[in-house]
């Protein structure tokens, strides 16, 4: 953040005096100051989380709080080692990743497809919008017992729920993005005689991609929430189960391992989708040129 003037305004000069606007800082100093500013930003970005961990560790070592409830970072790392050693963690991570990826991909694909159709066929949107709005508001977890009743105690109800949570976010934002494609992009397509499919490919799809990827990222975060929620109550495996099971066994260290890993997992998943989005929309990158082909 740079302000236009970094000093408070001087009191008004008396009439008849000459007011001079001249550099207050030399160019070299200005450059040095900006470079220092960037170093400070980076130090804050990495230093604050690390500093917090160090304070936490020190506080634990000084017995400032009950280590049974608040294990130190060292204890958590130790639990991580144990969990990896026994193979519990890998198994849980694998199961959760599988559920998340399958549910997300299915929900996202169906949501995208339907979003584009609803966005382009106005009448269909008019007909289905109230239903989608109503179903979207139903908490997905509330549907779990019904799905368990129908499909039994398998992975299928879990996958369906994750896919549903992704689907609604994606379909609603995609429909909105498609209907919001500006007329000044659609008119040239119409003018040059583009067919419906060509308009979709050359205009509607790329025009809505940036907001579609925002919705995919939101849906990814939400899918992790839903997944952990489901695994708490049902599933017998996965990261959510690991956390819940650790609580039941009063293995506090492993509980923290689970929570931290779920957070890391969520960040990685969202970063992956943001990265895919950047690849898919090269024109939104600042100063980005098309790679030669």
């Amino acid at each position: 953040m740079t302000t236009t003037n970094d000093r408070p305004l001087a009191p008004p000069a008396p009439a008849g005096s000459r007011i001079v606007f001249a550099p207050k800082v030399s160019l070299a100093d200005r450059y040095r100051r900006n470079a220092r500013g960037r170093r400070i930003d980076n130090a804050l970005r990495f230093g604050v989380p690390i500093g917090l961990l160090v304070i936490w560790q020190l506080a634990a070592m000084l017995d400032l709080f009950d280590r049974r409830f608040f294990p130190s970072p060292g204890d958590v790392v130790e639990s991580l080692g144990t969990a990896i050693g026994t193979g519990v963690l890998q198994e849980a991570a694998l199961v959760s990743t599988y559920r998340l990826v399958v549910g997300f991909v299915v929900g996202a694909l169906v949501g995208l497809l339907m979003g584009f159709v609803l966005g382009r066929v106005r009448r269909l949107n008019v007909a289905l919008d109230p239903i989608i709005s109503a179903l979207y508001t139903v908490p997905k977890l509330a549907m779990l017992p019904i799905l368990l009743l129908i499909f039994g105690l398998s992975d299928l109800p879990i996958l369906i729920l994750i896919a549903a949570s992704v689907f609604f976010i994606v379909v609603i934002s995609t429909t909105a993005a498609v209907t919001a494609v500006q007329k000044n992009y659609l008119e040239p397509a119409q003018c040059f005689g583009a067919t419906g499919l060509q308009t979709l490919r050359h205009v509607v799809l790329p025009a809505s991609l940036p907001s579609v990827f925002v919705s995919l990222r939101l849906a990814a975060g939400n899918a992790v929430l839903v997944l952990i929620g489901i695994e708490f109550v049902q599933g017998g495996a996965g990261m959510g189960y690991l956390i819940w099971n650790s609580w039941q066994l009063f293995d506090v260290g492993r509980m923290y391992v689970g929570v931290v890993l779920v957070a890391v997992f969520g960040v990685l998943f969202q970063t992956l989708i943001t990265g895919l989005g950047r690849l898919a929309t090269p024109w939104t990158r600042r100063g980005g040129s098309a790679s030669s082909h």
């Binding site: 000044n184 992009y185 008119e187 040239p188 397509a189 003018c191 040059f192 005689g193 583009a194 067919t195 060509q198 308009t199 050359h202 205009v203 790329p206 025009a207 991609l209 929309t281 024109w283 098309a290």
Partner: peptide, 28 residues
């Protein structure tokens, strides 16, 4: 007919070359 619009209306997601080729790719 072909039209040149006031606000350019060229596609930000296409390169210059792709924008120019657009009218040839669609339609006939």
């Amino acid at each position: 007919s072909a039209m040149v619009f006031q606000d350019y209306s060229i596609f930000p997601w296409k390169t210059v070359e792709q924008n120019v080729r657009f009218g040839l790719e669609v339609g006939a």
